[in-house]
Write a protein that binds this DNA or RNA. Structure first.
Lengths: 209, 209
DNA sequence: CGAAAAATTGCGTGCCACGCAATGTCTGTG
DNA sequence: CACAGACATTGCGTGGCACGCAATTTTTCG
């Protein structure tokens, strides 16, 4: 049998650990170079070199430099959806959505100045498509969670998918607004406000269509 | 002086007319080939050939085949936003939005079977980014119109941009839902329902934040 | 008509995604 | 511990695309 009981979880094998290491190295290199020079002026060759790996290997992990740069957003999207699932089941949907989104997007102004610059990357047009992909996955996750709460189906009813899409859109507008405005506002507050616009208590309380 | 008084408007010059002609030829060729073979399997070279023009000329009009294919969506986005502006000023915002969007998206099932297939192109992942660009322009137009109605500012207040983004997101979900479901439902109805989910009369009636 | 303006085109360059096969590295088993 | 199979890395080659540049053709308008 196996000498240790941990296989898939943390990535017990040395193999898997190295894999994640190079993956993270590629992401960090991609984000750093994108912040410094801009997404254009950043070639795949440069990212690979900065991560100490061959250009061909880069494409084994990501199919484009944009995908590497925005991959952090994909992870955040997953975590945000999970945060909604973890909210208490008896909490009103509107509140659950507000908290789930705002809690996963703390204001990085103070603690981490680089994180702020990283969030600002969302404004580069060339990265928009990739961030949009991340938003689509968040939509699917949120729709599933909303359907779960309201007793509707993602395929049958329009409600879960529409509300999820609206909430994600609100999140995007809030983040963009925050990134382009002054630093004296808290990101979480803006997100909560934007989400509140699209999901009002009166409608969130309803069941099926 | 000029022998004729028409210069910019309808495209008086023969030059401008030919330009729009080749542009339309490229769009039609791109859409047709994309419908037949799929967006992949459709090279820029093929589109240019089908439009009777050189590949280099294609790139003078569009910077990618996806842009050519989705350009119809951009036009529709413009028209939709204008439709909102034309709604009576005293009409409640929720109703104005529902009507503007639904009226500009009549059900093409009966009159034009090809239009239906064209709308289905929205589901191809490779075209998503380009359709998203169209959605972003619609967002900006709608936000401006909403700000106009509610007396808020697109830059200052979060409300217009957020509501516009939510409405556009609802439109996307509705269109996707309709495209992937049976033909016995009217597109306009689904859009109206989806829009109704994100914009309730109770909130749409409010003024500033 | 004739010159300026503008569109089309061919050519060259750089970047990129990806299939394929060779090579190197890790893993579990006998 | 050795080994065979699984898996990651890499180099190479191919096809496609976006775009700058300059030559050529077409349109415009005095």
């Amino acid at each position: 049998m196996r000498p240790m009981a941990l296989d898939t979880p943390v990535g017990g094998g040395l193999r898997e650990r190295k894999k994640q290491a190079t993956r993270q190295a590629l992401i960090q290199a991609a984000v750093r170079l994108a912040r410094e020079r801009g997404p254009d002026r950043t070639r795949v060759e440069d990212i690979a070199a900065a991560a100490g790996v061959s250009p061909r290997t880069f494409n084994n992990y990501f199919s484009s430099k944009e995908e590497a740069i925005a991959s952090a957003a994909v992870d955040r999207a997953e975590r945000t959806a999970e945060a909604l699932v973890r909210r208490p089941a008896d909490e009103p949907l509107a509140d659950a959505l507000r908290h789930a989104l705002a809690d996963e997007h703390p204001d990085p102004s103070v603690r981490d100045p680089e994180a702020r610059a990283q969030l600002r990357l969302i404004m580069w047009p060339q990265l928009r498509a990739e961030y949009h992909k991340a938003e689509l996955t968040m939509e699917r996750r949120l729709a599933a969670a909303i359907a779960e709460r309201t007793g509707t189906g993602t395929g049958r009813d329009l409600y879960p998918r529409t509300l999820a899409a609206a909430v994600v859109a609100a999140l995007r507008v809030a983040t963009t607004h925050w990134a382009s405005s002054g630093k004296d506002v808290r990101l979480g507050d803006i997100i909560a406000e934007a989400v509140g616009i699209v999901v009002s208590p009166v409608q969130a309380g309803r069941g099926g269509k």
